[in-house]
Amino acid sequence: MPVRRGHVAPQNTFLDTIIRKFEGQSRKFIIANARVENCAVIYCNDGFCELCGYSRAEVMQRPCTCDFLHGPRTQRRAAAQIAQALLGAEERKVEIAFYRKDGSCFLCLVDVVPVKNEDGAVIMFILNFEVVMEKDMVGSPAHDTNHRGPPTSWLAPGRAKTFRLKLPALLALTARESSVRSGGAGGAGAPGAVVVDVDLTPAAPSSESLALDEVTAMDNHVAGLGPAEERRALVGPGSPPRSAPGQLPSPRAHSLNPDASGSSCSLARTRSRESCASVRRASSADDIEAMRAGVLPPPPRHASTGAMHPLRSGLLNSTSDSDLVRYRTISKIPQITLNFVDLKGDPFLASPTSDREIIAPKIKERTHNVTEKVTQVLSLGADVLPEYKLQAPRIHRWTILHYSPFKAVWDWLILLLVIYTAVFTPYSAAFLLKETEEGPPATECGYACQPLAVVDLIVDIMFIVDILINFRTTYVNANEEVVSHPGRIAVHYFKGWFLIDMVAAIPFDLLI
């Protein structure tokens, strides 16, 4: 008679799926529990143990900040960024110097990925580790590398530091407007667009060049630039800015003055950032001319202004700041037409079709709590990747769950009947059967004279019903998954307890 339990259901295979997918890609990662103190490590794979030199037993239950890997060259700011990422709910990448158990130093890129439950609360953290440099290539500990984003994938490793954006290309926007319009339909740009040429040739750093990471940081200074100062900065030398009595002219307006920039070969870094931020506020060169004239017309309804409409929906549905990093990277690809469009465009503009998908598509409701890094690593669709929660398995109709209350009560009843059979069957065979043979035949009273025979008949009927119930009862397979398919249940029961239950259900007393 089957006594099969499996009270692990309803099970959740999400954690096993993450481990299996990460292991298949030869990654070095740990999984931490966000619900406990210090976000203790609950799993670390073999790749991480080989990377740091510690065994799994030495890593388990330690804080996922990996303070046991810190050393003299470990930056405090990087460690603080990892700790801050564990307090938030967004994906974050941090470069930090770690030390192995043998004392060797290596520069590592740590990717902190939160995993949320159905309520939107962070319950786990996945920390992925990628070695960037070994100890002989690690720089000085005073050099802070965590304020910069990861290198873009479309640049060669040897040319990542030679990417320079020439400031004269930004200063000569109005001069290039006529050349853009003359391109017409034969050019790649839309009317009114501004073409910015980027020099990728390796050259020595000069005062006129600005690194790509500095251009990325310009967006942080746009908020500090007032509207009046932006307007004066875009007017140009024809209309000098008016300053109040006793007030000095704005240095932001002076930063885009061609006369002032041409007199000296070098520009201050602050002026460069502010000038680029001011130019980015204009949607095209037409807006710059309109600002000089004193009238700013409404933005025209053409394809170039609607190019950012799908980007707005993608940004609203993005799951991490990696989408913004990807957008900034692609927006700086050289030799393309940049349409400086305000994100607050007309909502009635139709979304044009684009061959290049900048932001990841909208994630469906079932995966809105899973970050983009987890979705990318697992390579699963929205119909396959579940949320991290207890999910009731989908069972067929008329199927009994093996952990249901009805099955528990039924098993206790069958257990009592088995005990009765084990006690009274030998007793009936030894004593009652002998008395029946010696006594007179009682054929007239039937079952009324033999109450134990009636009980034995009921017990046999219950055993037959138990066999039928076992054909529709779920079970737990070797992978700790609840199986509810009727065919698989029948095959599993035939290979197991079916023969024993059938022999126990045969009414031998009635056959004798």
Rank of each mutant, 00 (worst) to 15 (best):
P2C: 01
P2H: 03
G6S: 07
H7I: 08
A9S: 11
F14K: 08
F14D: 12
T17S: 07
G24A: 08
Q25G: 07
S26H: 15
K28W: 01
I31Y: 01
A34K: 06
E37Q: 07
N38G: 13
C39Q: 13
A40L: 13
F48I: 01
F48V: 01
L51S: 01
L51V: 01
Y54C: 01
P63H: 03
P63F: 01
C66I: 08
D67N: 09
D67C: 05
F68W: 10
L69S: 01
H70G: 01
H70K: 06
Q75R: 13
Q81M: 12
Q81I: 09
Q84M: 14
Q84V: 05
L86G: 01
E91H: 11
E95A: 05
R100H: 14
C108P: 01
L109P: 01
K116S: 13
N117M: 15
I123A: 15
M124F: 13
N128P: 01
F129I: 01
F129H: 04
E130W: 06
E130L: 03
K135G: 10
K135F: 06
S140D: 06
P141C: 08
G149E: 10
G149C: 06
L155V: 15
G158A: 14
G158I: 15
G158R: 07
R159N: 07
A160P: 13
K161Q: 13
R164C: 06
R176Q: 08
E177Y: 06
E177L: 06
G184N: 14
A185T: 09
A185M: 14
G187E: 15
A188E: 08
A188Y: 05
A188M: 07
G192L: 03
D197P: 05
V198G: 01
T201Y: 03
P202A: 06
P202N: 12
P202C: 01
A204R: 15
A204S: 04
P205G: 14
L212S: 05
D219A: 05
D219Q: 04
G224P: 06
A228Y: 06
G236M: 04
G236A: 12
P241K: 07
Q247R: 06
P251H: 15
S261T: 06
A268T: 11
R269T: 07
S275K: 05
A277Q: 06
R281S: 07
S284A: 12
M291Y: 05
R292Q: 14
H302C: 11
A307D: 14
A307N: 07
R312A: 13
S313M: 14
S313Y: 12
G314M: 09
D321H: 06
Y327T: 14
Y327C: 15
R328I: 04
I330K: 13
I330R: 12
I333N: 12
P334D: 15
I336M: 12
T337D: 01
F340C: 07
V341C: 13
V341E: 03
D342P: 05
G345V: 05
P352N: 07
T353W: 05
I359W: 01
I359E: 05
A360D: 15
A360R: 11
A360I: 10
P361N: 14
K362P: 06
K364T: 07
R366C: 04
N369G: 06
N369E: 06
N369R: 08
N369W: 11
K373N: 01
Q376F: 02
V377K: 03
S379M: 14
L385Q: 07
L385E: 03
